Amino acid sequence: MTQSSSIPVFEAAVAAWAGGSGPVAPPAELVAAVLVEGASDRAAVLAAARVLDRDLAAEGVAVLPMGGAMSVRRYVALLGASRPGLRLRGLCDAGEVRFFERAGLGADAIAVCRPDLEGELIHALGERRVEELLDDEGDLRLFRMFQQQPAQRGRATAQQLHRFLGTTSGRKEQYGRVLTAALTADALPAPLRAAASSR
């Protein structure tokens, strides 16, 4: 099995383990794992790697969504036990750093999004470019309707965009990928660059 195929198989096995299956055996070529909170973070890290012209799976790097930062200790325990010396990195929102620290990851191993991934991407792209990408994806009309909701009137556009990206199931993952892919390598937010450079 090649490096590019065995890492995704391992990622799927870890997802099954998280759902209650048996122990997971990492492939021999696994050299590092990036622990992320959810699917949107994973999509963004993989998109950032493509922007940087890197193939993380081929380099032996797995990107593992955990279903929330509070699961990080469980993942660190699993991976540490299965492969002593495996390099572990984390990507998280500013409010979740404590969970990664308590799991034993050092500050140099944690890439922190401030305040979170969506905030980093909106800041990096600018509001106008994000709206253009919403238009490209067929969501701009929905966003304009969202802006007219009483709870959104009077809020800054960046705040409205941030809230809109999290209102529908799957949207955060979709735009984690789309917004990241629209950036140049130089414009990638530092936390994403760090996570996508893990090895």
Rank of each mutant, 00 (worst) to 15 (best):
E120T: 03
E37W: 10
L91Y: 13
V31H: 08
A103T: 04
S4D: 14
E173K: 12
V45L: 07
T184Q: 15
G20V: 05
S197M: 11
L125D: 01
E132L: 09
P23G: 02
G80R: 05
A16D: 11
V97N: 04
P8F: 08
E131C: 14
A16T: 10
V178W: 02
A107M: 07
G80T: 01
P150A: 04
V51F: 02
R155P: 08
L88C: 11
K172E: 11
V112P: 06
S5A: 07
C92Y: 05
H123M: 13
R98P: 12
R102M: 08
G154I: 08
Q160A: 14
A44N: 11
V9F: 15
A39S: 11
L105G: 07
G138M: 03
R177V: 03
M66F: 06
P8H: 07
D108Q: 11
G119A: 00
R54F: 00
L52T: 05
C113Y: 12
A107D: 02
R129P: 00
V112N: 07
R153T: 04
G104Y: 06
W17L: 02
F164H: 11
S5W: 04
L125R: 06
A94T: 07
V76W: 01
V24D: 00
V178Q: 03
D55Y: 05
G166A: 06
T184V: 15
P150K: 13
E131W: 09
A39C: 08
G106C: 04
A57F: 10
R144P: 01
G20E: 11
R89T: 10
V36L: 09
D108W: 09
R102W: 07
R141Y: 03
G104N: 00
G154P: 05
A194G: 13
F143D: 05
S198A: 14
E137W: 05
D136R: 12
V72Y: 01
D108K: 12
M66Y: 04
Q159F: 15
L192M: 03
E37H: 07
E96C: 12
R42A: 07
A158I: 09
A187S: 15
R83E: 00
P84M: 05
R128V: 15
A151H: 08
S6L: 13
A13I: 02
L188I: 11
F99E: 03
P191M: 11
